[in-house]
Design a protein around this nucleic acid. Structure first.
Lengths: 380, 380
DNA sequence: TGATTTTTTTGAGACGTCTCAAAAATAGTG
DNA sequence: CACTATTTTTGAGACGTCTCAAAAAAATCA
């Protein structure tokens, strides 16, 4: 296809006039517009400003335009200025696809929605996490592509996205033991960084994490300090590193305090309000009902609280209650919880990923943050 | 750079051998591997399978490969088969950037996170909505790019994404009156489709919506039928089409029922649990306390319920309570709510957008869905 | 001044795909 | 069989960018 300059020459007008004519600018009279339009039609041209047009207008070579627009040190300031002005006048916008093809990178990282078909889709923590990751990415001129991963063969989707050059790397959450995605990406040498991993064995990939054991330990110490001895745990089914670490920490704390965990003090349920409420009931109906209930996260605590309220068990007088994640619900309901520094974590995670993408890996590719206990009226 | 065939020829081996050697395949002995590697180095070649390599291996022209891979009718089945096999052998993956450049499209649509810095970030409805949009997109070989929009000049971000060819179009939610994003995108003739718009005047853009007035009408009719006359409304600050429509519908229903709305029956608060609880208190302390409380959504209803529980007002005996959106919280708490067919809506929305992107607009670019009342124990 | 070094600009070429017009192969017809 | 009509394949070229080696311009030095 022709360039704007060729159209202008063919119509016998200046580039600027041609540009204005084709972009329906008022400054051009109808006759000229028609004439330019005809020239464009003859050359089969449709208006689309490229670096070549800028070069033509500024009177430099196209290579110069590229350098100038990318603030290369090579270019003389006055030349750069000239180019920038021409770009401004023509309303130039870089074509990302062309750059991507040339540079073999995309400026996009992928993130998959938390496990598909989670019925409640209530994970405020991850929502906030990915929101902050997006912000971190955009501050560094990257974008986030969100996709859905199937339950089976999720790793194929990852493979396809990276090998078609759709993304430069991935942010991964909900890491499991022997996660096939991690195996696949590692094998392909594809850049990725995970949220979670410190309690996986041999986790030699990039990750950030918040020490979940430490978080539960804060909760336990707090409760033990208050004199609680019968402490129950409302956790998730085992098999997920996050939940297993929390349960392990609970057990350790009980052992260290010399307290035997009675039958029925521990219940496992999926991350659903109803299930949590039922499990709470089960725990409270055990032979030695706990005086404190530690929940795997705030959603579970919310479910438990509803049950306790419904049977007029007072919080914290009859039963103390704790959650985890410090989400808005816990704040509102006054439930003691554990805060995780999601914002800093997201930022750090993206920095690590970016290092890997640019083949300049950061020295420290595994960062662990400390959780923080937030005491509210559910435990005092 | 060279092609795989050139490397193979230079090393004096078959393409397949060269391929296996360069991809560290076991089937190739060390000597051959070295030899091929050296040839590759001399030609400055790094392994990256393209359609040209497939063409070389299958013994056809590169154009044929492209047609075959895209299932063009032009190609003879046997030829297609040959090409597909070669692609399979070499582990070919399409390069998206190259296709995007050539076809001037990206297969990506943009969606901005709901208004930035919403403190609670609790909008389960939109979370589910965008999740389903992603699924709809992927079923049609599209992807979703999520980005953050600033409070000021959000339209610039949209402009930049579309004019740099980063995306082909947008999904928009949280539409406001005189939305600058819509003005901008319309002016640029950029494809977009919105969630919401039926109660905007002159909304001549593509959208899907759920009739919010009808939804509240369902709630009101249900309450009136039960004999309630003193009905309060817990709504959002005016200025947002969704909320305004709901309030207008409440007022209409009251007027139609011949009930005067007393002072203090209507409260407006931001979408935050605490605020909702406080507003509920305010309404219940008005001169003629309502016997039923209609809330703008389930989050507000949750806030209100907490207040009612805290002062031992029984639901529904003392006060009936309704929400909107039918989210998991309402389900759990037994709050009567209004269900919106998010899944179908997301699907329809994407279809419309796709039509616009492909320049084959659907005949019906504005679709309105019906809400559905879900009666629970908070109103019976 | 002329020669040399340094700075700045140039123009070609490659990235991998799709698509067009033209060429080649095949099938159909009298 | 020769000719035409149809199907299939070919190969070139364009999409818009970045970057390299080479050329030109400017600055420095003797």
């Amino acid at each position: 296809m022709a360039t704007l300059k060729e159209v202008a020459d063919s119509a016998g007008v200046s580039m600027l006039t041609a540009f204005q004519a084709l972009s329906q600018h008022d400054a051009v009279d109808e006759v000229t517009r028609r004439c330019v339009q005809e020239a464009a039609d003859n050359l089969n041209y449709t208006l689309k400003i490229t670096q070549i047009d800028i070069a033509d207008l500024a009177g430099v070579a196209k290579g110069t335009v590229s350098y100038a627009l990318n603030n290369s040190e090579l270019i003389k300031p006055t030349t750069r200025q000239k180019v920038l002005e021409a770009a401004q006048i023509l309303g130039y916008h870089l074509n990302i696809s062309a750059r991507n093809l040339r540079m073999n990178r995309t400026g996009v990282v992928g993130y998959s929605w938390h496990v598909a078909d989670d019925p409640s889709r209530m994970n405020n923590l991850l929502d906030r996490f990915i929101y902050r990751v997006t912000m971190a990415a955009e501050e560094r001129s990257f974008h986030l592509l969100t996709f859905v991963q199937p339950q089976k063969n999720a790793d194929r989707v990852y493979e396809s996205l990276i090998s078609t050059s759709r993304v430069d790397g991935f942010i991964i959450s909900d890491v499991t033991y022997n996660d096939p995605r991690i195996a696949r990406l590692t094998a392909m040498r594809a850049p990725f960084a995970a949220f979670g991993g410190m309690y996986l064995e041999n986790a030699d990939f990039a990750y950030v994490d918040v020490d979940g054991k430490k978080g539960i330990r804060l909760v336990m110490d707090h409760l033990l300090e208050q004199g609680h001895e019968r402490i129950g745990l409302l956790g998730w089914p085992s098999g997920w590193p996050f939940g297993d670490a929390r349960e392990a920490s609970y057990r350790e704390a009980m052992r260290d305090a010399g307290i035997h965990i009675e039958n029925g003090w521990i219940a496992h349920t999926p991350n659903i309000l109803d299930s949590a409420a039922m499990a709470a009931q089960q725990i409270m109906n055990s032979k030695y009902p706990p005086t404190a209930l530690v929940c795997a996260n705030d959603l579970m605590a919310f479910g438990a609280k509803s049950y306790l309220d419904s049977v007029n068990l007072r919080i914290p007088d009859d039963v103390a209650l704790t959650g985890y994640d410090d989400d808005p619900t816990a704040q509102f309901l006054g439930i003691t919880s554990v805060h995780q520094p999601i914002d800093e974590l997201a930022e750090a995670l993206f920095e690590i990923l970016l290092g890997d993408i640019n083949q300049e890996p950061l020295p420290n590719r595994q960062i662990i943050f400390n959780p923080e206990l937030v005491i509210r009226r559910s435990t005092r």
